[in-house]
């Protein structure tokens, strides 16, 4: 037992120090920084909540935070909604011997660098891009469609979807799809198929059996997918910087601007802490809600 404990501690030690050094340490520094203030070229180390007051009071920060949550929420929703049918198909309708091939194919986008994929979207969404070329070639009346559907870039007629919040949503949804498919697939795989037969046997149709059995049992996977997509997209910095334009900037871009552009590290730290807290609250709420809904005890 003693020996076991020692071995366990020995094994955990390197990653533990690594985590303290590179995770907990910087995190603590960020929290400490957030209670300081920037005094032109020097940092005023008197503890104060002035930054927090400003972050919550200034409409710019509120707007960017709101937009960040809106974009991330939309990306999460779209990604998980699109991922579920894929995962369901692979789990329920693909021959067992071909499932791993399907999963392998799903991960193919990871073979190219994320930056390359962003640039691909630029090519597709740009003013002279693939999408616009096709739309103008088949003579889609952009303004009319835009007015009818409320899609902003179409309403403006001559512009392109690139450099907008829509472009960020599109690019992120595409990038995170495999992350959402895999946990949902795993949850669906774990469902004993005789449970679905039992539901049919007890009087449910295929659709109601899905709602009463498949969906609640897939809930852990869906929650995992929601969080896996939502948490990193809130903090995403590259995508909005590349395809977001002024209307698609997110909180991470603002944090970067505070640290580097405006030389206001304490304010950047404050925004980072706030973003972290909001993500924590939303993540916990999601888990709690899913547990309530699916009746898992």
């Amino acid at each position: 037992m003693q020996q076991e404990t020692k071995r366990g501690l020995g094994l955990i030690a390197p990653p533990f120090f690594y985590a303290v050094l590179l995770m907990a340490g910087p995190l603590l520094a960020i929290v400490v920084f957030s209670f300081w203030t920037q005094d032109y070229l020097t940092v005023d180390r008197t503890p104060t909540i002035a930054n927090y007051v400003e972050a919550f009071g200034d409409p710019i920060y509120r707007a960017i935070m709101g937009r960040t949550l809106w974009i991330s929420g939309l990306v999460t929703l779209i990604t998980v909604l699109l991922a579920f049918p894929v995962a369901y198909f692979v789990s329920f309708h693909v021959d067992p011997s071909r499932k791993s091939l399907w999963l392998f194919l799903i991960t193919i986008p990871f073979w190219t660098s994320y930056l390359l994929r962003i640039f691909l979207w630029k090519v597709i969404l740009g003013y002279n891009g693939v999408l616009n070329s096709i739309l103008s070639y088949i003579n889609v009346p952009l303004e009319a469609v835009g007015n009818a559907t409320g899609i902003l870039w179409m309403q403006e007629g001559l512009s392109a979807p690139l450099y907008s919040a829509s472009a960020v949503v599109l690019t992120l949804s595409h990038a995170f799809a495999p992350f959402a498919i895999l946990p949902i697939f795993v949850a669906l795989e774990k469902i004993d198929r005789s449970l679905l037969e039992a539901a049919r046997d007890l009087g449910e149709t295929a659709v109601t059996a899905f709602i009463r059995v498949t969906l609640p049992l897939a809930a852990p996977g869906i929650v995992a997918a929601l969080l896996i997509v939502f948490i990193p997209t809130v903090g995403d910095y590259v995508t909005p910087a590349q395809v977001g334009g002024p209307g698609g900037l997110m909180i991470a871009n603002m944090i970067q601007t505070q640290f580097l552009g405006l030389n206001n590290a304490p304010m950047g730290a404050t925004l980072a802490v706030i973003a972290m807290l909001i993500v924590t609250v939303i993540a916990l709420a999601t888990v709690w809600l899913a547990r309530r809904l699916s009746g898992v005890r």
Partner: peptide, 25 residues
């Protein structure tokens, strides 16, 4: 005729007890 419309009920080999529900449910 599909199973939900038949006057038969089955006890499955694996019992197929819904793990997300209580005994009464």
């Amino acid at each position: 005729v599909s199973p939900n419309k038949r006057p038969t009920n089955m006890v499955f080999q694996s019992y197929a007890i819904f793990p997300h529900l209580s005994v009464a449910q």
